[in-house]
Design a protein around this nucleic acid. Structure first.
Lengths: 141, 141
DNA sequence: CACACTAACTTAGACTGACTAAGTAATTTC
DNA sequence: GAAATTACTTAGTCAGTCTAAGTTAGTGTG
């Protein structure tokens, strides 16, 4: 039914506003922004080219250049070169970056886990049951 | 169990990244930013003071001043005065603002409804069943 | 091989959205 | 009526986003 899809979309839209608001509040006191944390996360399993990073985060290349500039300035990543193509620039985590990633992730997961602690078993089960559908709903085309 | 809260938090954290990414992509081509849309939404049922608006959107007063400045510049809201207290400034939708709000909301809801159309009945039911829990999870303290 | 084209980045400039600190004007309190 | 508080604005900073334009490196074609 189109009707129920629409009603569901309206409800989810309302919920999303609360989610965004709360996440903003939760990350306001972090040492790192959520974008930065997200980029560090992409580097967890090894260096990555600028183009790939930009695509992965849905931003243009100049945006990623600026982002990596800030992270490099703060000593969290290092730029490198790709041997096979001299145009390519890669970014890699430094030791400090790896630490910051772990700390930021811990804080974020901890925040969510704490909130989950305030839910009943049934509510947690409902969220767990909906996650695959949510992933599908927001999966890349 | 703390364990399952944590696992759930980790999964939700991953899902949230997709959600944020997709919403950014979905709103990139809008005539209005999602913050602006959100503020216009607060004015739907009548004028509102700056302080209230700021609190409702979880930002400081100067941020809301700047936001309302932009909306006023674009002809979407008008500043007004509150009779009972000469310090108070209110913001109200203009006709253009009301139109823009309707259009933006329609586009956003439409986008979500379209995505929901790609889900099975079971998946939609799972999302619907999880919404109350998600609202509780992200409700203001 | 040289020339044109494309690809990968960076730089420059502009804008939104967030903050703090400081200023102004009106109201409340003592 | 003077001091404190409240409601906003202004000024200045910064992250993060974009487009347009510049640079350097690889690709392909006559």
């Amino acid at each position: 039914m189109t009707v129920s899809e629409r009603a569901l979309a309206e409800q989810l839209n309302r919920s999303l506003r609360h989610i965004v608001l709360m996440l903003r509040r939760a990350t306001a006191d972090q040492a790192i922004t959520s974008q930065q944390l997200s980029v560090l996360g992409s580097l967890e399993h090894g260096p990555c080219r600028m183009t790939e990073l930009a695509a992965e985060h849905g931003v243009r290349l100049p945006t990623m250049t600026a982002q990596i500039n800030r992270l490099e300035r703060d000593g969290l990543v290092e730029r490198g070169r790709d041997g096979s193509d001299a145009r390519v620039v890669t970014a890699a985590l430094t030791a400090a970056g790896r630490e910051r990633l772990a700390a930021g992730r811990e804080q974020r997961i901890g925040f969510l886990a704490e909130r989950f602690a305030g839910l009943t078993d049934e509510e947690r089960a409902a969220v767990a049951a909906a996650l695959p559908a949510l992933d599908k709903l927001f999966a890349a085309p």
